[in-house]
Design a protein around this nucleic acid. Structure first.
Lengths: 231, 231
DNA sequence: GCAAAAGTGTTTACAGTACACCCATGG
DNA sequence: CCATGGGTGTACTGTAAACACTTTTGC
């Protein structure tokens, strides 16, 4: 049986799986570690939680140190608490994932910037990551795959204005399955949660597609009436 | 910015929502607190995590101190980490829920026993619980409601041998909705995951019902073939 | 005029839903 | 013989799935 002081010799951290979509692949940000332990291994962005800082705030801070964006989707996945998961002491970590809109300048010019890189989810899952970060990454990816089927969170990964083909490609990239174009469009448009912007794509060497925008208010209203999003 | 030692002045705990089913109501175990803070309030069973103890093990220990059962379903839900959630210091808690088969002697003759009581989930959700335990209870209940629709975990709450009516009443109690008897039976039996035990109920003042048992091996095999459980 | 992706409907199959009566047992 | 819950089938409806061609634009 441990003395009460013993319980306070542990620390907690947050790790954040930051997802983005570059019109082709689902991607995550990894950090090349510059120090021991696991020097030179890729790792998830994370940090210890400050003593007077809420868990969610710590996760948002980790994100903000890497990425210059506001109002980003952030969801806790679960805690990882194996005794030996950190070689230097007892550290329980709480995993989060974020969904961001990739833009050219999205990776901050911070001290992290030079060691942070986007990796496709497939590549990242095959890397020998630091700590138990592979397990964490898998858990977060599976959570995203489930979430995206029943909640309208996919839009967080796309520009505000997007085409239906882009939306379909996003779902195909996340779920790893091809979808039927006509059925996909029928289903999404029937939900009545997209606004037709009456604008067209520009600069493409083919017939330009119509641009749409997700309407959160309409979604909320429908939800109150018993509607459930379902891909 | 805090000194590194500051990070180690926090503790973590686990709290466990233990669900049972008494053929009528979905129930949870609550503990009447005997000490400050929140003396005399109802609370979830929980404890600090030992320095050399895995999170999952700590949750199982909390359960084992209350209930005399082996091989119980246990699932982590999420961490709760608001700075002020514990009045005496920084304590992050990780919430779990367990599903157990209620038997007459299930509540241990431990020091806890005299302060531990089963409450119906409806009653428990209306109580003024200690700490943020109401939020935790809500999160665990919602998780159970979602889980039970797509995973065959309901059987953990029933005796090994059960009738289809008992199974239906369980789902109605968890989800809070009435179901159609014929459709429910059709759906469950079509899944082919139950074994007909060729035994009948005894001691009932009406036509005795057939007894069934869940077959985990058959479920596993079907799952590998793409079958998904769905209520 | 050619390459490239946008856009569009119909048919078919399956799963969900609604619904009412007879049966077996204990008391 | 009566009260209680057990057990069963069918018709209807709506959603998911399969599937191919025409249109618009840039070059």
């Amino acid at each position: 049986m441990a003395e009460i002081e013993e319980f306070f010799k542990s620390a907690f951290s947050v790790d954040n799986v930051i997802f983005g979509f570059d019109q082709v692949d689902l991607k995550v940000i990894l950090i090349r570690r510059g120090a021991s332990p696991f020097k030179d291994k890729w790792a998830l962005p994370g940090d210890l939680v400050y003593p007077n800082e809420d868990l969610d705030v710590a996760a948002a801070r980790v994100l903000a140190e890497l990425v210059d964006l506001r109002g980003v989707y952030l969801e806790q996945v679960q805690a990882f608490g194996a005794v030996d998961r950190h070689p230097l002491g007892r550290v329980i970590t709480v995993a989060y994932y974020s969904l961001i809109k990739i833009q050219d300048d999205v990776l901050h010019a911070s001290s992290w910037a030079e060691v942070a890189r986007w990796h496709s989810i497939q590549d990242a899952l095959e890397l020998d990551l630091a700590f138990d970060h592979r397990t964490i990454l898998e858990a977060c990816f599976e959570r995203l795959q489930r979430r995206v089927k029943t909640q309208p969170v996919g839009f967080e990964l796309l520009p505000v204005a997007f085409t239906l083909t882009e939306l379909q490609q996003l779902y195909e990239a996340i779920l790893g399955v091809p979808m039927d174009k006509r059925n996909f469009r029928k289903k999404i448009l029937a939900m009545n949660i997209l606004v037709d912007l009456n604008r067209l794509q520009e600069g493409v060497a083919h017939r330009p597609a119509k641009l749409y925008q997700f309407d959160p208010d309409r979604y909320e209203a429908l939800t109150k009436d018993g509607f459930t999003f379902q891909i």
